[in-house]
Computed example of a mutant assay.
Amino acid sequence: MKRRTLVGGIAAAAAAAAPGTTGPRRIGMGDVDRLQQRFAEIIASDHRYGGQRGIEQRAAALADEALNLQRAGSATQRVRSNLYACAASFRSSAMWAAIDGRRYADAQEYMREAQALAEMSGDQAIKFRIWSHAGAMYRHLGRPGDAFAANDVARNLHITRRDPMFASLGLARQAAIHGTAQDRTGTRRAFDQAQDAMLRADPDAYRPVWLLAFYDQAELDSLALSAYLALGDYPTAEFHAHRCLSTLRPHMRRSQALATTRLAHAQLGQGDLEAATATAMQVRGDAATQHARVSRMLQEFGAALHARAPHSSTAQTWTEHTRDAWKATA
């Protein structure tokens, strides 16, 4: 489905009247609160399932709903700014679902729409989220130069100076990009700075729901795990994997699958085939077959395992597991 990618297209959406209305009405913060509740539901679904096209489509539809309210009735400037922020939030969630599902062309369209909406809202937090997601997208695409540039936009927003937690996330993702770029010194320095910023952050400060839902010590260790795995520093990657998994909140099912799969790669990289296979077999079948990033990494794990020990009992165990245990959830 072709989507609008320019500000003009967004304005056209905003000009459309909400379905079912018979005349102008007063749009207020109650409407904004209702949309924000729906946004919290999208965030929860993302952490449970991740990368699913259904999440992407629901988030995109809710962005359109927020835009339709702009001309459904009269509203104050505060309400209008909040509606644009809601629309940008939903577009950014659609963007992230597409990134997580490795649908990068779709993600880039959502990114352009989300950036325009965020500018109209003036909301620093959602601007940070969008540009930080853009950095993650380019990192997954293997384009560290673009990833650094996008992440720098997020890191240079003044919200990172007001709240060290935003600074910490920006630095942690910067470190992950350094890992992709094979810069060991940059990786270590950025993670040290990210950890320091997290320790300085006020735990009671107000933060948006999307940040509260995922960014903590476990996520910092998850990004470190990804970076050191990319660097081929498997012992350090394994250390961060265990620390991540030990503190990961129960609702973070997608993150658990990713961290477990990366732990298996770190163990395999150290030659511990049996432990690596046992770890990989712990990944839930639904994540193994339905989450694009997890599925790809497990395929790569199987290929690496068979390359190391093609006729071993461990390789045979893995083959039987992927054939039998995942068949019911494929």
Rank of each mutant, 00 (worst) to 15 (best):
L67D: 06
I42M: 06
D324I: 03
D202T: 05
A116N: 14
V79D: 01
A176P: 01
P144M: 02
Q37I: 05
Y138Q: 15
A18D: 09
A315P: 03
A118P: 02
A14K: 06
Y234M: 11
I10R: 02
R139G: 04
M281N: 05
L229G: 06
L248W: 10
G186A: 13
S168P: 07
A201W: 15
A241P: 11
A224K: 03
G271W: 02
Y104G: 00
V283K: 11
A276G: 03
S168Y: 05
Q182D: 14
I126G: 01
T76I: 04
L305P: 00
S89G: 12
I99G: 05
T247I: 02
R34I: 00
R53P: 00
R200M: 08
E41G: 08
H265D: 02
Q77S: 08
L258G: 04
E109P: 02
Q124V: 04
A17F: 13
A63S: 09
L171V: 08
Q182C: 10
L223T: 05
Q115P: 00
A304V: 11
Q108P: 01
W131M: 10
A280D: 06
Q195T: 12
T260M: 01
R34S: 06
A98P: 12
T236S: 14
L248P: 01
A154I: 11
W318R: 03
T160E: 01
S168A: 15
L69P: 03
T236C: 11
Q37S: 13
K2Y: 12
R38P: 04
G135K: 04
P144D: 02
M297I: 05
A276F: 03
A325P: 01
I126M: 04
Q316E: 15
H321S: 07
R4P: 01
P208N: 04
F166H: 10
A278P: 00
M165V: 12
F148H: 07
S92M: 11
Q270G: 06
Q282P: 00
R26N: 14
A330I: 03
